[in-house]
Amino acid sequence: MSKDIAFSHMVVEVSDLDKSEKFYRDVIGLDLLGHNMVADNRPNALLAMNTRQRLLLVEVPKVPPYPASGGSIHHGWLLTIDQFAQARDRLEAAGYASGIDPRQTFRAVGEYNMDIIDPDGNRFQIQAFGEEATDILPSGAGVVSCGNIADHAVGDVVRNGKGRFFLSRNEDGYLAISAWCTHKNGVTVWQKESWHFYCPFHGAKYDCTGTYFGRMGCAPMRLHPVDIDEAGNISVDTNRFFARSKHDPAHVVPAKPGAKFSTAGLELVKAAVPATTSSEG
């Protein structure tokens, strides 16, 4: 059934049609199409988005209360980044400045949100994603020293916070895995107890090779080149990012002196801003 359907419209109960119509038209920014355009005896108004989607307001004598724990119930508008800026201006002009999401610092890079409550207490999230949500974001840490091959055991995953990467030691050797989630730019964490990388922003999960598993269709986490000198000292070049379509053991750098990173089959991807060449780890 799913392949034949698409979201059409949302019906919202309101206690004062005029008031809500004004809110959704002038603050949210929908177009009013008309009144009483559906088979419903209650006063109603139909508003349009730029896509096929519609919003139908129906006036009822009493809008039912939310459950006490109903704070999770909400609905999300998706705007272009330009529309988002315009919406912010409209909200502020209408006195909704406090609707700016106080949790913005916990959002992934490039993800913008505002929360707004309609006149009947329905919570809406206004959301947009900027280009930086998928930009390649260098840490600025440059080439980072990561100790010696004698320091790591098979199975170790060491986070380098400044360099925004994980050094993963598996039975074949080393991978330096960029910590940026390939879905949207959230910074992943290593959940040792589950043996996977996890993005707390949208729930993406990757195994210890950086391979995504799940249904969001994310690319594998990107790699930084690992270099091991003749003394067994490891360095990771955070200036360069390599994208890949799948994990290939050929990209694992053997845990032995003089081993080098192979770029065969990998795509060097361009960073969004110039990277530095410092070597502090």
């Binding site: 949302m10 349009a48 730029n50 119930i73 609905h75 508008w77 998706l78 705007l79 529309q83």
Partner: peptide, 10 residues
């Protein structure tokens, strides 16, 4: 309009 779509509901 100034809005493209609704994307999700909790």
């Amino acid at each position: 309009a100034y809005v493209e779509s609704l994307s999700h509901s909790g």
